[in-house]
Nucleic acid binder design. Structure first.
Lengths: 343, 343
DNA sequence: TTGAAAGCGTTACCAG
DNA sequence: CTGGTAACGCTTTCAA
């Protein structure tokens, strides 16, 4: 009933009447071993289904070839897609991954980090939780020189490599797209203000208004939390204004779908009454009606890139890098009120 | 620049001028150690940030407290949600998880299994890939008594515990729901016929027709692959029939959304022209318009249950169990043509 | 060409 | 109460 114990080098050695060292060497093709001996040993190893014990190796080299990942939430498509990119790149290079979730909570994030360190992962790839505003737990890592890469929601960029998107430019582009296709009053739904990503996307939005010399109105900016409910709440608030917006830029997919629900519930038409742009992947954007114009993240590529940066660090590259994986504005049905025939 | 090596028991022992055994015992609150000594040791351990080396422990006990997971695809909400349930339950019990993806390919599935075994995970939770029709790689595991639990797409149920949903009943219920709310010709879109899950859900669908004495028509059943494209293709095929269906049961979320797209493209209205039911979670069902009536999996619970079954096996329970986590039919806007006032 | 032995970090057993 | 030692599986000198 018990799990059968795998064979060890020792057992193979005894069975063949040779020493452990000999078996070890034969199995790694050491040239010093006689051809016959080597063949014989390899044959038996195959037959007995020998597999090197990874714990022994890790003990020896203190490197388990495992990469730890911390995301705010595994279930969200955005993160799972990034994880997918990390995973593939990691496996390609002989690494396994351990995925942990902070559930957007500071305390859980610290726990995840703690666990990963205890497991002695070789490096960590992480995205900050919404609640994280204190980075001391990561600073500690920096002191211990644990290789680490952040993506999306980043911090301590002088110490760790990071992967980001062109947040400012992409939301500026989206806002400008609204303004050049018939929308006049563009609102912005974001998340908690202390998040870097919120600041940046809001900045891009404001930048687009400034370039058009459109006065900025505080009431058109709703920044509370990220999530479906917050998007719903935000849109309801915006539509209830005395002078409501005729376009909404939602800086997240859940925010966008929440907003979409509120707009439809209010009996308004998209994009005629309220145009809408979100940030999401192709699949989800096409599920809804009208198809959502969206800033699309190259999520898989972001994951691959983050992993590549980490592998660099593991390989001994000391330099801290920051890579930008740009977003792409995919225009679909939800954003265009009228086509402008400029140029 | 190098990763600083964590302190070992030995180093602590030397620093305090005591033996390794003493330090080891003090740290695990062995009652045989003097109070002062214990305090002193613990203080130093804290200061030096001591963490037990998991590889040494694993070497000793041959149990890394890691559970391996194999899913066909991490990115699909269905699987990531199940993973989430597994993860939480595992962490609750002091286990980590390693998640691998077969990408619905038989060969990759074998590779995943191989990797997990090499890492010496204590047990494995898996869902078969679509392409898997040969189970010898899992039979090998059974011989080695590696604890293993399947969910959803299962095999070798005499050897491994498994978690399934009430596939037959749920699709029968969905079909019956169509028939009792005004639909007359119900079609079925499934996946590859060798998959157990396809057989079962199709069976439920057929069963509902039989109970109503409705003749079964081969042409109303489209079973090819699972995926958005297949759903789209399937619905186009069904709608192109001389006598097309007025209701479609799609046995997967991606199939349903693909079908929805095809129906809308054909200029037909849901549910008036074609009623539609899918299998999906609440979030996605509400994103679309009309909101999709759907058989909802209790995914998180399935994950938890699978993990619980595995923990049982790890705890030495020899008995093979099969647990049913039932689906729930969530009626939304896409399925009801007319409300029947029966009873 | 092969073997013996030390060491990686920990626990557990046996002495003292 | 505390120390010494073997053992877990493997790699790597050092010797033969």
């Amino acid at each position: 009933m018990d799990k059968k114990k795998p064979v060890s080098l020792k057992e193979l050695a005894i069975e063949l009447g040779v020493s452990i060292s000999t078996v070890s060497r034969a199995l790694k093709n050491s040239p010093e071993i006689g051809k016959e001996m080597r063949e014989k040993i390899k044959a038996l190893a195959k037959e007995r289904n020998y597999r090197p014990n990874p714990f022994a190796m890790s003990l020896l080299k203190n490197s388990p070839r495992i990469i730890g990942i911390i995301v705010p939430d595994i279930v969200t498509h955005y993160y799972s897609s990034i994880i997918s990119g990390i995973n593939d790149k990691a496996h390609e290079n002989g690494y396994s991954t351990i995925i942990t979730s902070s559930y957007e909570q500071f305390e859980k994030e610290k726990k995840c980090l703690e666990d990963l360190i205890n497991i002695r992962v070789e490096g960590i790839i992480a995205c900050l939780s919404q609640d994280t505003a204190d980075y001391t737990h990561f600073e500690t890592l920096a002191e211990q020189n644990v290789p680490m890469v952040f993506f999306d929601r980043i911090c301590l960029t002088d110490k760790f490599s990071s992967v980001i998107t062109n947040n400012v430019e992409s939301s500026q582009e989206a806002t400008e797209h609204f303004l050049s296709t018939g929308s006049k009053r563009v609102a912005f739904i974001g998340g908690a203000n202390h998040l870097e990503i919120v600041k940046l996307r809001k900045h891009g939005y404001l930048q687009a208004l400034r370039e058009r010399k459109i006065p900025i109105e505080r009431e058109l900016v709703f920044c509370k939390r990220i999530g479906y409910e917050a998007g719903y709440e935000g849109a309801r608030y915006l539509l209830s204004l005395a002078n409501p917006p005729d376009a909404i830029l939602a800086m997240t997919d859940s925010l966008a779908f929440g907003a979409m629900k509120a707009i439809k519930e209010a009996g308004l038409t998209i994009p005629a009454d309220v145009a809408l742009i979100g940030y999401t992947d192709e699949l989800h954007a096409n599920y809804v009606d009208p198809p959502l114009t969206a800033v699309t993240h190259q999520t898989y590529k972001m994951g691959e890139t983050a992993c590549t940066l980490l592998l660099e660090q593991l390989g001994g590259v000391g330099k801290v890098n920051q890579v930008v994986v740009p977003c792409i504005l995919s225009v679909r049905g939800s954003s265009i009120k009228e086509v402008n025939h400029v140029d």
